[in-house]
């Protein structure tokens, strides 16, 4: 198994950049911590179904997708503005 660092690093960076723009509490729906846990589990299912895209040699899960998802959540927690 050979893990490619490229998609993990740049997936995290792109996710952080976009996650910084998520702001909750602006609409009449309320997303709680539980909602984000559900989104994360759904994301893991999508990443699993994507297979080992894009390099076909590393983990049996899409590392780029997973890194982007983690990046978005971390970016939301660290940099997100509240309105």
């Amino acid at each position: 198994m050979m893990l490619s660092l490229g998609p993990i690093i740049f997936g995290l960076i792109l996710g952080l950049v976009i996650g910084s723009q998520i702001k909750l509490g602006v609409s009449d729906t309320h997303f709680t911590l539980g909602s984000f846990v559900v989104i994360f589990i759904a994301g893991i299912v999508v990443a699993w179904q994507s297979g080992n895209y894009p390099f076909y040699t590393d983990l049996p899960i899409s590392t780029a997708f997973l890194a982007a998802l983690i990046g978005i959540f971390v970016g939301k927690l660290l940099f997100a503005r509240s309105k």
């Binding site: 998609p7 894009p54 390099f55 899409s62 997708f65 978005i72």
Partner: peptide
Amino acid sequence: LICLGIMTILG
């Protein structure tokens, strides 16, 4: 969708 887009860019 955004995660899928990032995945498409990185592949």
